[in-house]
């Protein structure tokens, strides 16, 4: 166990955990967008910043990527932290002015759209946190999508911005996306995601369309469970 002082309270956390987990474990809330439980930490949304003090020096770190240390003094709500966080939020807000998630968060932390950060109109709700790309690679294991180009041109999508033939239409990317950028339209027997249409599998028992055929085929291939067994929805199993 490692002992630290977080917001004036003595907190101990297991070794090899990240600061964010320790802070949240102590019941202190820290706003985040990219720290989804399903994917590895990436430090890309930059909202989890906290101030750490070691000796006389203090600095701002992303708590989701900073490992706990013995004797660390952490401040999660100092003026400096709140200033940095507000600035990050203002920039995110300028990128995705339409995101209701960001608007709500900004309201909570008192950030407002700034005239000096000209609002983007072509970025949708994507904050480029890479959560969707991570879940596709780490959890699903197909790596159907990526972040392409760089700088202001950077966009998320399937390679060549064409329909991906490795995508299984599972919608995990939609599930982890913090801002709801990714569009998935499900209409009973069909599902459309990343510009590709997927045929849905009806449940053998209740007839409800519950998963894309491609996803079930992929699961069957990965786990060795026969397809027939998978064509029954989780409610009827």
């Amino acid at each position: 166990m490692v002992n630290m002082i977080i917001d004036g309270k003595n907190i101990s956390a297991p070794k090899d955990t990240m600061l964010l987990a320790a802070i949240r474990g102590a019941g202190i809330s820290v706003p985040t967008l990219c720290a989804h439980e399903a994917v590895s930490r990436s430090g890309s949304c930059r909202l989890c910043v906290v101030e750490i003090k070691k000796g006389n020096r203090s600095r701002i770190v992303t708590s989701c990527l900073y490992g706990v240390e013995e004797g660390l003094v952490v401040d999660t709500k100092s003026d400096r932290v709140l200033n940095v966080r507000r600035l990050v939020m203002e920039l995110l807000l300028a990128r995705c002015p339409e995101s209701d998630v960001l608007q709500k968060m900004a309201l909570e932390m008192g950030a407002e759209p700034q005239p000096r950060f000209v609002a983007d109109t072509d970025k949708g709700k994507c904050i480029l946190c890479r959560s969707c790309v991570r879940v596709c690679e780490e959890v699903v294991g197909v790596s159907a999508i990526g972040l392409f180009a760089r700088g202001s041109q950077k966009t998320v999508g399937p390679p060549f911005h064409e329909q991906s033939d490795v995508c299984i239409g599972c919608g995990a990317c939609v599930y982890v996306c913090p801002t709801g950028h990714i569009e998935m339209i499900s209409t009973g027997e069909k599902r459309k995601i990343w510009g590709r249409r997927f045929k849905m599998q009806p449940c053998d028992k209740c007839g409800k369309f519950f998963a894309p055929v491609d996803q079930l085929k992929y699961i069957s291939k990965k786990t060795g469970v026969p397809f027939e067994e998978l064509s029954v929805c989780t409610d009827c199993r």
Binding site: G146, F148, R150
Partner: peptide, 22 residues
């Protein structure tokens, strides 16, 4: 070529395209 590279090297096409566009 990008698709072939991915297949031959065991790297997902999306990763190859990320590098090529970066």
């Amino acid at each position: 070529a990008l698709i072939t590279v991915g297949d031959a090297m065991g790297i997902p096409t999306s990763r190859v395209y990320e590098v090529a566009t970066f």
